[in-house]
Design a binder for these strands. Structure first.
Length: 575
RNA sequence: CGGAAUGUGGCGCAGAUGGUAGCGCGCACGGUUCGGGACCGUGAGGCCCCGGGUUCAAGUCCCGGCAUUCCGACCA
């Protein structure tokens, strides 16, 4: 393959558009790989599309190797399928909905569990046909509340999604393991620094367990904690809290009664004013889950993790209770003085963090402006409440599996695998007959990889001040031949010859045959980040070209005849 | 969804008190250059986001939309 820049649909930008913030977004725009169409929507230009295809090829190879079979389903799906599982409501506002001319409801698939389950239930009859794993690589739609960071969070994006179907839990676990291993191979081949972490099941659901594959990068929107002493690693949305030590209390917290503390709203300030440890001042957070008011109760020194609360309740998300509803519920309370007492009588579900139950007594809001209540006995007050691990886990907290301090990092979620169990097969009636002739629901798993996001994640992990540094595996080409002076016949001929030779040997070549100054060509080459650059310049007459490696700028002069051998060697090193 | 900022040639920006739009880069043509974003000259290119309004006159002031971006959406 030879791509000529003189005729390519290709343009670099000297300056990135002012509203591009993320490094990968800026560099991909500047390098002429993508163009924005609207918020969260991008067109992949020829070189950008090559990158996507490289990623897809690796994903496809490893999927096929694992035994999965590729299909292609429609993006547009009848909403009715989503009614069957109830996800039409549960998925929330991120689901793109639309109607056809007859007023029939459709959705643009953000994921395809229903579609694939529907497909398989129409085909699979017997355990003899199982197990089976199907996948596709296709556009997905999510009506993001805030698309951002270029390809990292778009409204339309490319995803590989796979679904496994097994007879039972053990089969499902084996399919899951096979996919997990395929993912490990995929991210290794892509050259991404990735870490698998325990994850929340979220809107996809299921109960069997889930792992996310996180590309480590500061811009990552997910926070993970991991243990260097053992192999524990989890998204903070999932990270298990361990009991915190009990700080020394004061009699102030123990003595039953009201205390007036007007204008002190925050638990830290309240604790200080009362001379007690902050742990003893409870925070009562009012939320709404599926329209129902609920209260989360934590120690003052702890932070609520909303994702844990939502997961425990089995809803997609929880939102803070609106001010109007709070006023209706607790007319006399204001900001800072909300407490748990009397809430359950009003139908508010109470969810209490275990560390709260460990407190012998505590201080909480009185539900009346300006007053706190002291001497609350959690084990009595919350006798009927649900006890839930709700607190945020931070770097330095003890590892739940070995106790060593946890480390934290930001990650870009590039893949996730789920054990779904019968979450979709049961409501949708996807069943098979076992050896005994018994009808049983299929056990499913689902497995996603964010193909377009990976391109951006690679750039986030691999760039310098001059531009992108593509790993060989996903680079839009292997070698970038720069003809320094197009007026010079010798250089032109040699450049063309080189490109032909390399291409004939199976390498993908970009040749810069534009009528541009050397400086422009070098700058563009750096920006574009092809792993190997071959410069045909003033020594062309002596049969010498210059080979330089983008990654470390290491440069050597070579005789033309040596080129193919050297490239082969460097290619083997996965430059 | 809440808050904020910004919308002026392809990109980056400037356009005090309202007076009919400019700079740099890019683009086209000519010439000189030719190994790290060259130089000189000439030129093309703008519904100033959209819709109302005020005014003799609106890029500029007022109202309403739309779009893009950023921050937030744990201390109730």
């Amino acid at each position: 393959m030879i791509l000529r820049l003189s005729t390519a649909f290709f343009q670099t930008l000297r300056e990135a558009p002012a509203d591009a913030e993320a490094t990968s977004h800026r560099l991909m725009l500047r390098a002429g790989l993508i163009r924005q169409v609207a918020g969260g929507l991008y067109t992949y230009l020829p070189l950008g599309w090559r990158i996507i295809q490289k990623i897809e090829a690796i994903v496809r190879e490893e999927m096929d190797r694992s035994g999965a079979q590729e299909i292609l389903a429609p993006i547009l799906q009848p909403a009715q399928l989503w009614e069957e599982t109830g996800r039409i409501r549960a998925y929330g506002p991120e689901l793109m909905r639309l109607e056809d001319r007859h007023g029939r409801a459709f959705v643009l698939g953000p994921t395809h569990e229903e579609l694939f389950t529907d497909l398989v239930r129409g085909v699979i009859r017997s355990y003899r046909q199982l197990p089976i794993t199907l996948y596709q690589i296709q556009d997905k739609f999510r009506d993001e509340r805030r698309p951002r960071f270029g390809l990292l969070r778009g409204r339309e994006f490319i995803m590989k999604d796979a679904y496994s179907f097994d007879c039972d839990e053990e089969g499902m676990a084996a399919s899951y393991e096979a996919m997990y291993q395929a993912y490990v191979r995929i991210f290794a081949r892509l050259g991404l620094d990735t870490r698998a972490v325990e994850a929340q099941q979220g809107a996809i659901g299921g109960t069997g367990g889930s792992h996310e594959f996180m590309a480590i990068a500061p811009i990552g929107e997910d926070e993970i904690v991991y243990c260097d002493a053992c192999d524990y690693a989890a998204n903070v949305e999932k990270a298990q809290g361990v009991p915190s030590p009990l700080p020394a209390a004061s009699s102030r917290a123990e003595t039953v009664g009201q205390v007036s503390l007007p204008g002190v709203i925050e638990t830290g300030a309240q604790a200080e004013a009362l001379g007690v440890d902050r742990a003893y001042v409870l925070k009562t957070l009012l939320y709404e889950a599926d329209g129902q008011p609920i209260a989360a109760i934590l120690r003052g020194d702890h932070t609520l993790n909303e994702a844990k609360l939502a997961a425990a309740l089995g809803v997609a998300e929880v939102t803070p209770l609106s001010e109007e509803r709070v006023r209706k519920l607790l007319p006399k309370a204001t900001h800072g003085y909300i407490g748990p007492l009397g809430l359950s009588e009003q139908g508010v579900g109470l969810f209490v963090e275990p560390d709260v139950m460990a407190l012998p007594y505590a201080i909480c809001g009185s539900n009346e402006e300006g007053f706190l209540r002291c001497g609350l006995r959690p084990h009595q007050a919350f006798a009927d409440a649900r006890i839930l691990d709700l607190k945020e886990v931070y770097a330095g907290d003890p590892c739940p599996s070995c106790g060593a301090p946890l480390a934290a990092a930001h990650g870009i979620e590039v893949g996730q695998v789920f054990k779904l169990g019968t979450k979709y097969s049961a409501p949708m009636g996807a069943v098979y007959l076992d050896e005994a002739g018994q009808q049983r629901p299929l056990y499913m798993g689902c497995y996603g990889i964010g193909v377009s996001r990976i391109a951006a994640a690679v750039v986030e992990q691999s760039h310098d001040e001059d531009g992108i540094v593509w790993p060989m595996a996903v680079a839009p080409a292997h070698v970038h031949v720069v003809i320094v002076d197009m007026q010079n016949e010798e250089q032109r001929v040699m450049g063309e010859h080189l490109a032909e030779t390399l291409s004939a040997s199976g390498y993908e070549v970009i040749i810069d045959d534009r009528q541009e100054h050397a400086g422009v060509k070098f700058k563009d080459a750096d920006l574009l980040g092809i792993p190997l650059r071959m410069t045909v310049g003033r020594k062309a007459g002596e049969g010498i070209v210059e080979l330089s490696r983008r990654r470390d700028r290491k440069t050597v002069e070579l005789k033309v005849e040596e080129i193919v051998g050297i490239v082969a060697r460097l290619f083997g090193e996965n430059s």
